[in-house]
């Protein structure tokens, strides 16, 4: 545990020591900020229309029209940003040979992999925490559903976890960060679009595709509906890729 935290802390501070980390944070905040402001403006316009309508406001729902689309957008932004955050995790260490320090220290490979995972998740937690002021704005202006917001953040976190675990494994396959980025992003995109492929196919294929799609599994969560099968999906997804990374790092010793 101590070792995991030590590695995680180093990874986390490494993000703030390089322009990449700051750049990613700024870009993330800028894009989510733009979407947020645009959604709020749109929704408040619709609200105003509804409020003066003689039929009352039967169907306007802050959670469905604002919170869910906002987190849907955030998920897509994460899809682009997380691979850029994870590309260096192993690739850079291999390139600078710093990995040898980890491999020759009295720590387990599991601790190395988890440390890097937790470090990247820490940075993502910081990123997500930086979006909390949007929620504050929402609470100030309207009455969003705390439960929906909370489960949406859970969704973002689980989704990011899945992204990071994929990034981790692709990063361990190459010394070149750009290659790692392309591999990671490509793989995520593939898993992402399984959801689209699902609607284009039928029957058994569709079922399997829909089941495996990263995007489909978070829809309920951003609606405030927590399914154990969805949480289990993300956790098992993360576990699998962390295990694959573990095997890959072990293989460094046996190449």
């Amino acid at each position: 545990m101590r070792n995991i935290l030590a590695i995680a802390r180093r990874e986390l501070s490494a993000y703030f020591a390089t322009p990449v980390g700051w750049l990613a944070l700024s870009a993330f905040l800028l894009i989510t900020g733009f979407f947020f402001a645009a959604l709020v403006s749109l929704y408040s316009m619709q609200s105003a229309e509804q409020a003066f309508s003689p039929y009352g406001a039967p169907d306007m729902n802050l959670n469905e029209y604002l919170v869910a689309p906002f987190f849907g957008n955030t998920a897509i932004i994460l899809l682009f940003i997380v691979p850029a955050l994870t590309m260096r995790l192993f690739a850079e260490d291999r390139k600078t040979r710093a990995l040898e320090l980890l491999l020759t220290s009295p720590i387990t490979t599991t601790e190395i992999v988890l440390g890097k995972f937790v470090g990247a998740m820490g940075f993502i937690a910081v990123m997500l925490a930086c979006t909390l002021h949007y929620v504050g704005v929402l609470f100030y202006l309207g009455d969003p559903d705390v439960g929906v917001v909370a489960s949406s953040y859970l969704a973002m976190f689980l989704l990011s976890g899945a992204f990071v675990s994929v990034g981790l494994v692709t990063s361990s396959f190459t010394e070149n960060q750009v290659v790692s980025l392309v591999l990671g992003f490509g793989m995520l995109l593939l898993l992402w679009v399984l959801g689209w492929a699902e609607s284009a196919s039928t029957g058994l294929t569709a079922e399997v595709l829909g089941f495996a799609s990263l995007i489909n599994r978070m829809e309920d969560l951003t609606k405030g509906l927590i399914h154990t099968r969805d949480v289990a999906y993300y956790l098992s997804f993360i576990s699998f890729f962390l295990f694959a990374t573990h095997q890959r790092v072990e293989a460094f010793r046996w190449s």
Partner: peptide, 25 residues
């Protein structure tokens, strides 16, 4: 569900844009 409206004054709208797009980034 009960409906949840959200209305802003023009100034609030501007502040939201400033905070979200200029503030944090």
């Amino acid at each position: 569900g009960a409906s949840g409206l959200l209305t802003m004054t023009g100034l609030q709208g501007i502040v939201v844009w400033l905070i979200a797009v200029l503030g944090a980034p």
